[in-house]
Structure formats: C-alpha cells, structure tokens
Write a protein that binds this DNA or RNA. Structure first.
Length: 1094
RNA sequence: GGGCUAGUAGCUCAGUUGGUCAGAGCGCGUCCCUGAUAAGGACGAGGUCGGUGGUUCGAAUCCACCUGGGCCCA
C-alpha cells in the first residue's frame, strides 16, 4: 500500500459513517477475495465445530424473526472459526409438503383436492418444484446482506434425488426395526387437503371459533319414555353414533320432566337443567347402565355388529356435558379406542372430503359441518333436543389451508415412536438446552405424551413413501434406494420418466423419484409372484427436515457421504425458534434415536438455543398478511446489518419473546457501534496528525502480540506505561477472558454485555482521560504509550467484535491492521485468531481501584451539580472521606487523575476513621457472612453495631483482630464480618456512597476566578474554531479585547490559552478589520474574540 | 381443563446459589463539554419488583393461593 504524504499511515475516518454504504463495500470485498471460502478452508483438517442449518421453506419472504434466527446461527460458527475450528456450514432448503402445494393450488385457482387430479398430478408436481425457489433469491440476498455466512452454493435440497433416497434408506431401516406400520386410526384430517396431519402439525393451527353446543336425548330401547341425555359440539357426528359412554363409578339420576325421564350424571343436573322444572326420580350407578340399549338417532348406518348400547369409558368428564358421552368411533380418538374394546362398528358416513356419503339421504354430498344447523332443526322437530346453545372454543384448523380439521378414522402409515420413547427421552436429557427449562418443560412434556408419528400424507408433492405392496397378497416392504428398487425381480416402469425426459430434455432428473413417475415402477412379489406397486402416499415433510443430519450428504448411498456424515455428527450447535419444539427439534431427535442405535448420547445435537418470537412494537405476532412490521431489507438499508445484528445479540436473552421496533435498533447502534466507531475515528484523526505508524521498526507482525510489536518505534511493554494505560490493557484482557467464557457457554447476551462494557470503558474513561496526551505537541514516550495502548486495545476489540458486527470489524481492521501490514497479517479480520487473554496483563486490583476512582469522580460531579459549579471553574479543594482505610492507597495513587477530572487544586483524604463535620461513620454487619453463622441473632447484632462507635470498634478490631459484642450472649466478629460505611452530613456540597463522601470547598478567590475565566476564553475560542471549520491541527492567530480583567487573564494565562487553542500568537489589542470576531459573555465579563488562520 | 413461561421505572429489558439504599439503555428534566463536534458526557426525577399469605435473622429471588398476559396442548 502506498503511504499518503506526511507519513499518514491510516486512512481518514469519517466520524459520521454511512454504515449501509460501508457494509456494501465490505460485501464486495468479501466476494472479490472469497473471504468466506477462505475461512472455511483455513482450518480444514483441524477439529470440527459441527453446525446444522435448519432448512427454511423459501416459499415466503423472510421477516425480522428469521433475521434473529439467522444472526444467532451465524455468531457461534464465526467465533469457533476464529478459535481454530473447521466449521462446515451447509445451507439447506425445505422444499416438500403441504405449504408448497397450497401455494400452487392458490396460484392455479384449484380449490379442492379433486381439482388437482383434474389438472393432472404430473403438471401439478412440476409446478410445485418450480415454485419452491420462488423466494430463494430473496432469502439468499438477506442471508448475504446480514453476513450470515452459509455455504449457499452447496445447499442441500430436500427434493433432490440423493436426499430423497437417503430418507428412503432411513425409512427402510425403521421398517427393518419393526417401527413402520400401517394402522386404521383416528387422525387429524384436513378434508380440504384430503390428508392426515401429524400431531405436531395440528399444534400449529388452533383457532377460536363458535360452535353449536347441544343436548340430545337418545330414546331408550327398553323404555320409550326414558332418554339418555348426551352433549356434543359436533352435531354432524351424531349420524355416525354407535354408542353412549358412561363412567361406571359415577352416580346417574333420572330426572322427570312431564311424563318423560332424562338420564344424566347427578353432578351435572344443576348446570344442564338450569331453571327447568324437574323431579329426581331415582339414582343409579354408571355400572348398572352398561349394556342398556337405545334407538339410533338416524337409520342410515348399515352394520352387522351390535351397536347402540351403553359402554364404559375412562374419559367421561363431569366438568362439562351430561356425564354421558356420545360416541362415534370414526370421529374421535377416545371413541375409536372404546369402540374397539367393545366391538363397536366404525360407522363412517362422511367421505374423506368431509361430505356426507350417499346413504345419508337428506344431506348426501354436502360438507358435514355445514349441515349442523339442519341436523339440529331436525332433532328439534323430533323433540329429541333438550337445549341448544353456542360455545366459543379453540378448534384445530389446517395450518396451511386454514379450514377446520376433522378427527377421522383412516388407514395411515405410522412410526412407532412410542416403542422407543424411553430412549428418545434419555437422549433429550443429555442435550444442553438454552433456556434450560425447555428440556424438562415444554419439550420434555411433549415427549411424555408422545403418540405414534402419523407419517403418511395423501398428497402429491413430497418424498414418496417407499413402501411397495403386493396387489395380490398384500405383503409389503420398504425400499432403501432406486438401486434397491431396480434390483427387484421383474422391476419395470422406469421408462415412464425416461420417455417424459426424451420429450422434454429439461425435465429435472430429480423428478424421477417423485410422483407420478415413481408410481409407475412395479416388480414381482417374492412371496406370491403377484405384482408389487407403490402405495400412493407421500410422507410428512417434517421427516424430510429431521433426516438432514445424514440426508444432507445423501448418506449412505452417495460415495464419500459416510465419511462426511461421520465427521459432522452429532451437531455441536443448532438454533431455531420455539415453534420448532414440535417441529424440527422433535423430528431430528426422534429420527436420530430411531435410526441410530448409538450408545453415545446426545445426538443428533448437543447444544440448542431456542429463540423467542419476535413481536412488533404493539406486542403482536409478525404477520405477513397484516404487514405489521418493517421489512428487514428496508431497515438494513437505513441503519445497516450490523445494527440489526447487534440489536438481536444485545437487547435481551434471545429466548425471551420481545417487542421489536426500528427505534430500538437505532438505539442499539448508538450504544455500541457508533460509540466504538467514535473511538476509532478519534484514534485515526490523531494518528494521522502525528504520523503514528505502528509498522515503523516493527518486525513481522501476524497475530498482534506484544512480542511482535517489541521493536517498533515508541513501543514499551505495558508495565512501563502509565496506570491508565495499564488499566485499559487489563480491562481489555479481562474482557477477552469473559467473552470467551460467555461464547463457549452459548451465552450471546452475556457476551454482548462484556463488549458493551469494554467499549464504554474505552470511550468514556480511557479516551476521555487521555485526550490531552494525544493533542499535546511533543512526541514523547507518554504520547507513544497512549497511541500504542489505544491501538492495541482497538486491535483486540476489532477481533472480539468480529463475530458480532462483522462489517464494522472488517472496516476497522482494514485500516488499523491491513494498512500497516498489508502482507503479513490475515487479509480479513475473519481469518484472524480470536484474541487470547494475556493473564500477565490482567491486574484485577487495578480494575477495582479504578472502579473506586470512577465512583469518587461521580460523587464529585454530583457535588458540583448540587452546588451549581460548572467543571470549568477550578476549585481549591476536594475532601474525600473514605469508609475503608484500605482505600486510602488507591486515592493516593490516582490523586492526580481525580484532581484533574474534578478540576480541583488539592485533594485531601482522611487518614483515620474520624467523624468529620461533613461525614459520619457507621459499622454494619456483613449479612452474607454472619447470617448463616448467627441466624436469629442477626437483628440484635445489627442493632448493637448501629449503636457502637465506629472508630472504637474499628480500633479494637485493628488491635485484636476481632470485635466482641455483648448481647448479652458474647458474639465475636472478625473483620470480614463487618463493613465500615460512611455518610455525608447535611448541608455541605457533598455527595456520598457507602464507601466514600466527597466534599467540595466552594470558596472562590481571585486566582481561581481568573483561572476559570481563562478556561472560559479557551472554550469560546475553540467554539469559534469549530464554527470556522478549522482542521484539528490548524494554527491560529488570536486577538482578544475586553475589560482590564480579561486582558490581565490573557496575559497571565497566555501560554495556557495559546496551547489549548493552537494559537501561534495572542495579542490583547484592538481587533483587526475583516476577520471573524465574536462577542463573548464570560460569566460577567465581556470580551471580543478574533480568530484568524495563521 | 392441563403444561410451560413471564408479570421489576413511562418504554424495552437485566438481576449471578435468598444477604439489607433495586440495575441498564431509551425517554423525560437540569446541565456540562465543544481538539471524537449535526457527536460525546454528567447529574437528577421516576419502582411498596402484579396481589395476598407463608418459610427465613433476612425475600424481587423459595413455597402456596389469587389475578391479568403470552405460548403450547387437551
């Protein structure tokens, strides 16, 4: 790199940075130099940090919640890369399933499942495949723009042939283990989509709706004037009623109304009958009702089996209803179970599309739920209805098409997760969840109530269920790959796809393993010689995503996949939002546990951060349709991606659902990014003015170690530098230690706090206290110390913040590190190693001392504010009363700093515990120490110490090492068990904390007033300089005219004023013509100031 | 109805195994600084830590109940 003139090593830094533009230029830099690719390769062969990307469905636009997920995912791989790990980061896309089909149906205007058949499965599936990448470009753009480094070029795609075959392999494995079975079960069913949903999908669609709530009488077959009263919110299921269920241990009564008797649980009589007139005529135990029969409500069902009688069940509740439960085995899980136990028929008079079958004469062909009203009116007409109301309750809806679900008995394919649930739970126990309560709370509970995984979907666009079944004998098996299929005897039908491809060479080869082509493949049944063909179903797309640990590599079929899989299993880290508890987290865990008999746990992931939902400023869920949030891209264009990233890391723990708005992001940016930038720009301004060049005299610098800087010009080891320098160096190293600890613990919020604090120390104490060292004229050792200290701190800070704010870090690194060492240091900050704490540079005692110094200064400022004395006005004296004599040394050591910061001439502090006119002492118990030891005596000790003379008590302790109290029990306290505190007395310019009181002498004499005046003059002149837009190092000529006093001050403090204003001359005569002048009011004195460029 | 989670300043959130004036940022008020300058900083006001009861020498923190919220499920 060519040096600029004047030995200016560093580029100028605009104090008002345009972050979005800066980021765009960094993006170009990364791309041109393939920095991400290089970081991926640098640690190849080293230890691996394993990260799994949960595949997003790219058929919608990303919103701020996705940004949260993605920046959390990015942080740890970046950090681990800098720590020397190889971190493969394969991207992935979830491409199958209902979400995709629904989008395509909408686009094609298809309303029902039949419409798809009319449109044609082949073109439909092809449409689906085309649509899955509709928003991929947008996702990729966002991913890149927020600097989520993910290997997008090598993404896994769930519809790819290798992926599907891997999923097939897993299913075949499960089949071999006896975990795949076909069952007739009541499943949550979407009549519009015409498919079953898994329990985790049902969880996605609960909505509050209004349903009828009716009480229906079933007339006894034995006594036509007795009615069994049942309650339901789904009148349409009454047509398929097969039995009534009671609790055998509950008391039932006969309630006479007119000349009819209603049977219901005794406990429900009140709520059910309400104000109706009735008489209780008898009581009977539920057990005694069993077996009694009643007349069916409707005659449409034909069945050979015995039905329409009373059975026992364990699910009868007395919280609602009548204690007698209408039972329709086809439409409820409990109903189905007791139906089976009692040999009941499964009466199913609703077809898969939710329409009544032709037998149901009055309502045949109509959507069942739409007939509720007419059924109710019919019952009313037949005087079988006691009452009708409506009820608002949560009812499951299809998570994609939004239609109401039915519980529906259906043949489906299941995975017997319940058989291995013990192992799944054991595996879960060993996973480190953040927050921890997920493990035994939400996720653990979910596992406890596990039901078998309803795997099959009667749909089109998905991984085909690899089950081939003989048409003749019904024997079936699961196929593990296309090769496996080809090797079956008499296999044929592959030509259907091949022919389609001949006609259309562009046809994706991945379609060969999808419907409808794969359905053409058949082979000979090995058992009976019949023909085996594939069952029609596809599988739940959650199985796809849960199979990614191996399917992303095409394991085990693809050559080399075994090595890759083994190297990257299990994951060290994953992160997704809380809604994935029942989604990806579950499918990953269940599949891994079922497929791999690994003794070594946990797998397939060790650490999981569960993210909270991002809400908008009103606390509402982000909703695409409501547009109730700012698009991430818009926000990034305004404030930059680093700001957004930093907001998500630093605002709160990532698992708390939090309100998010644009203003908060800007705040986060000011708090950290702008502050750090200001420190950086401060450094650059002065380094340029002074021509500070860290490479001058330095040897080979690669890792920014002090040993590498040793020979550089002006470089001295930290121990030879000032207290302040040593302090910030110590703070920096402490921060490195803390930051590593937090990040190793997956605690990004804690990590962000460490950075914030260091940034604040740097900006608001180190730079603030060091300013004068940078702008003084001579380039002495102290000035070099200041440069080197700030420079080294910034270099460390830049590497520490790199995983969090990668753009900011890169920009600063480019200037701070690459300018001086264009070839020896890594070309990107992201290729650097993460800083290591230099334990020898850590001085915790100094940290504590400086904390006290800052506390004293704060007290002094508060005292000034209270006395209305601006800092510009020097004061004679500040008295510091310290509670702890051990602190005296600290004050002595840092006296100059305190005096300067408070602008006082002299600091005095006490050398004994003597109450003064300003402050009093008290001695207090250290509760933490004495509590466990003295228990109930604590209040007495507290009272005794309150009365005690602090000085005497302290003296005794100093002499004897203990303090004996007579309560009258003798209690002995050691020095660590008490604490001396100090308090300001009323009426002085004083301010107190527990450890110190600072008192200001507010008296002003002529000397102090004149000095204050001199500072006023400096202040006004420098304001003028900035109004005139003078550069930082421009020299001026200064002319001041004013009162005798002003002139006298100018003469007395001429050197000071000239030094502070960079004036080459100061005259006190009349003001020359034609130059900038300003009339100033200097607190009572007026003057005319005239500044001209020298 | 069950489970989980949170209820802390006007707002967004911290608060380490219970330890004695309750923390930050923003906002607000009053100022300071003006050589980081359309930035930076200080000081201050503001909270009976949702309510009640309990355990304890001591509770924002532990327990019980109540109350309104969110999420998940039945």
């Amino acid at each position: 790199m060519q040096r600029e003139q004047g030995g200016r090593m560093f580029e100028a830094v605009d104090p008002r940075a345009d972050f979005p533009a800066m980021e765009e230029s960094i993006l170009r830099f990364w791309k041109e130099r393939d920095i991400f690719g290089k970081t991926l390769r640098t640690n190849e062969g080293g230890p691996i940090f394993r990260f799994y990307e949960g595949p997003p469905t790219a058929n919608g636009r990303p919103h701020p919640g996705h940004v949260l997920t993605r920046v959390i995912k990015d942080l740890f791989p970046r950090y681990k890369t800098m720590c020397g790990f190889h971190v493969p980061r394969k991207a992935g896309w979830d491409t199958h399933g209902l979400p995709v089909e629904i989008e395509v149906e909408k686009e094609l205007g298809l309303e029902k499942k039949d419409d798809i058949l009319r449109y044609g499965v082949e073109p439909f599936v092809r449409k689906c495949m085309d649509s899955v990448f509709r928003y991929t470009a947008e996702w990729e753009r966002l991913t890149e723009r927020i600097a989520f480094w993910l290997d997008l070029g090598d993404a896994y795609v769930t519809y790819h042939k290798s992926y599907v075959e891997s999923v097939w392999w897993a299913i075949a494995e499960l089949w071999k283990k006896g975990l795949l079975y076909r069952g007739h079960k009541v499943v949550p069913w979407c009549p519009r989509c015409g498919t079953a949903l898994s329990s985790h999908e049902v969880g996605l669609g609960y909505r509050e709706v209004e349903d009828p709530s009716i009480y229906v009488g079933f007339r006894s077959a034995e006594d036509p004037r007795t009615y069994y009263l049942a309650w339901t919110t789904t009148p349409w299921t009454l047509i398929s009623n097969a039995a009534l269920t009671v609790d055998p241990e509950v008391d039932y009564v006969y309630a006479r109304v007119g000349d009819e008797r209603l049977v219901m649980a005794e406990a429900r009589v009140g709520p059910v009958m309400g104000k109706m007139k009735f008489q209780v005529e008898g009581r009977v135990r539920g057990r005694e009702l069993l077996g009694r029969s009643y007349e069916p409500l409707y005659p449409y069902a034909r069945t050979d089996r015995k039905a329409y009688f009373i059975i026992a069940g364990d699910f009868v509740t007395l919280d609602s209803g009548t204690g007698i439960v209408h039972t329709a085995p086809a439409f409820g899980a409990d109903d189905y179970r007791v139906g089976r136990e009692n040999g009941l028929p499964v009466i199913q008079l609703v077809d898969p599309a939710g329409r009544f079958t032709p037998e149901v004469a009055p309502w045949a062909g109509r959507f069942c739920k739409d007939c509720d009203g007419e059924i109710i009116r019919d019952l009313q007409r037949r005087k079988l209805l006691l009452r009708r109301e409506t009820v608002r309750h949560e009812y499951p809806h299809c998570w994609r098409c939004d239609g109401p679900l039915l519980y529906y008995a259906r043949d489906s394919w299941f995975l017997a997760t319940t058989k291995v649930i013990g192992r799944i739970i054991g595996n879960n126990r060993l996973i480190r969840w953040r927050p921890e309560h997920i493990r035994d709370g939400r996720f653990g509970n979910f596992l406890e109530t596990n039901v078998d995984w309803a795997l099959s979907r009667e749909r089109y666009w998905g991984t085909p269920l690899p089950v081939w079944m003989c048409e003749r004998c019904g024997d079936w098996e699961a196929i593990a790959s296309m090769d496996d299929l080809r090797s079956r005897p008499g296999a044929r039908g592959f030509d259907v796809f091949e022919k389609a491809r001949e006609k259309e060479p562009d046809l994706s080869p991945h379609l060969a393993i999808h419907k409808p082509y794969i359905d053409a493949v058949t082979y000979d049944c090995q058992r009976c010689g019949g023909r085996s063909s594939r069952v029609t179903e596809v599988i739940d797309c959650w199985f796809d995503s849960g199979a990614m640990p191996f399917a992303q590599w095409g394991y085990p079929h693809v050559p080399g996949s075994r090595e890759k899989f083994e190297a990257c299993f299990p994951a060290d880290f994953i992160a997704e939002a809380i809604d994935q508890t029942r989604g990806w987290f579950y499918s990953l865990l269940a599949i891994s546990t079922m497929v791999f008999d690994k003794a070594e746990m946990p797998h397939p992931f060790r650490n999981c951060i569960v993210l909270g939902h991002v809400l908008n400023s009103e606390g509402e869920k982000l909703s695409k349709s409501k547009r109730n949030y700012t698009e991430p891209s818009e926000l990034i264009a305004r404030v930059g991606a680093d700001a957004l990233r930093w907001y998500f890391y630093s605002s709160n723990q990532p698992w708390t659902s939090t309100r998010f708005d644009d203003r908060a992001v800007a705040e986060a940016q000011r708090e950290y990014i702008v502050k750090l930038w200001n420190v950086y720009s401060f450094f650059a301004i002065y380094a340029r003015i002074d021509g500070f060049d860290p490479s001058e005299g330095a040897g080979q610098v690669r890792c920014f170690l002090s040993s590498e800087f040793a020979g550089a010009r002006g470089y001295r080891p930290a121990r030879e530098r000032s207290l302040l320098d040593r302090w910030i160096i110590s703070e920096t190293n402490l921060a490195v230690r803390e930051l590593r600890r937090a990040l190793d613990d997956f605690d990004c919020y804690g990590a962000a706090r460490v950075l914030l604090e260091l940034c604040d120390s740097l900006s608001n104490w180190y730079v603030r206290r060091s300013r004068a060292r940078f702008w003084k004229g001579e380039k002495d050792a102290d000035k070099y110390d200041a440069y080197w200290t700030l420079y080294e701190s910034l270099l460390t800070m830049v590497r520490m913040t790199a995983p969090f704010t990668p753009f900011l870090a890169e920009e600063m690194y480019r200037n701070l590190a690459r300018s001086p060492w264009p070839s020896s240091v890594p070309e990107s900050v992201h290729m650097c190693t993460f800083p290591e704490a230099d334990e020898s540079a850590i001085d915790e005692a100094l940290s504590r001392e400086m904390a006290l110094v800052r506390e004293i200064v704060r007290l002094g400022r508060a005292a000034r504010t209270a006395a209305k004395l601006k800092v510009r006005q020097p004061l004679r004296l500040a008295e510091i009363v310290l509670a702890n004599p051990a602190d005296r040394e600290t004050v002595r050591k840092h006296m100059a700093l305190i005096a300067d910061e408070l602008n006082v001439k002299e600091i005095r502090y006490n050398d004994d515990i003597v109450p003064t006119q300003h402050a009093s002492y008290a001695i207090r118990p250290n509760f933490k120490a004495i509590g466990p030891k003295h228990g109930a005596l604590v209040p007495k000790i507290k009272a005794a110490l309150e009365k005690a003379d602090a000085r005497a008590a302290y003296g005794e302790m100093a002499r004897t090492g203990r303090l004996i109290l007579d309560l009258p029990e003798k209690v002995e306290l050691s020095p660590s068990e008490v604490e001396v505190v100090v308090e300001a007395r009323e009426g002085y310019a004083a301010s107190d904390s527990r450890r110190a009181v600072v008192v200001l002498d507010t008296g002003l004499d002529e000397d102090l007033i004149e000095e204050g005046l001199a500072r006023e003059i400096v202040n006004r002149v420098n304001s003028l300089r900035s109004e005139m837009d003078l550069s930082y190092d421009a020299r001026i000529r200064l002319t001041i005219s004013g009162s005798d006093r002003v002139v006298s001050v100018c003469n007395r403090f001429a050197d000071y004023i000239k030094g502070e204003t960079l004036a080459v001359s100061l005259s006190t005569g009349p003001v020359p013509q034609g130059v900038a002048t300003s009339e100033a009011d200097l607190g009572g004195e007026s003057a005319i100031l005239c500044v001209s460029r020298a």
